[in-house]
Amino acid sequence: MPKHQLDPTKWVALYSDYLFNYTIARVNDRETAKDLVQEAFFSALKSMKNFKGEASERTWLISILKRKIIDYYRKSNSKKGQAEIRISYNSPKDDGDWLAERVADLDKTAEGKLENKELGDAIHECMSKLPEKQALVFRMKTIEGMDTETICNELKITPSNLWVIIHRARTAMAECLEQNWF
């Protein structure tokens, strides 16, 4: 019997945020990221019979999404890449070690981005362990930055309720990140 099984009815609820964050960190465009996540879900549905059950559902979905992201970059070809290479330097004095400086800058940016991606993964991992309502309220308040009144109206809860939920979620998140990140 396979170690893992697929349940597509839960995919959007369980993995859409994780996949979206994974994608937006790589394509830097919200609309494109949404489309790629949707395409990945559709492709996954079509190829469910190929799932062997060795990897977890999420790992399998990520592998499909990665292929979608690669395809996206292939399609958008090298125009953007060429534009990025054209670095303008205002005065001839800047000529000196500009390449070395540029490479160092790129290294720093790449390192930062990689760390952010890993941190994003750790946060999503921890959020997926929260009870559904806590995860929802924490997401709306902390990530989407919605105001208290709007959340209370949408979820039909009182402000005191909201702060109790936030408190529980923050405590659980801090403990989880303590183990996985800090």
Binding site: I24, G120, I123, I143
Partner: peptide, 10 residues
């Protein structure tokens, strides 16, 4: 950490 992560969600 949440601020530094620039995390996004739907």
């Amino acid at each position: 950490v949440m601020k530094e992560s620039n995390i996004e969600c739907l």
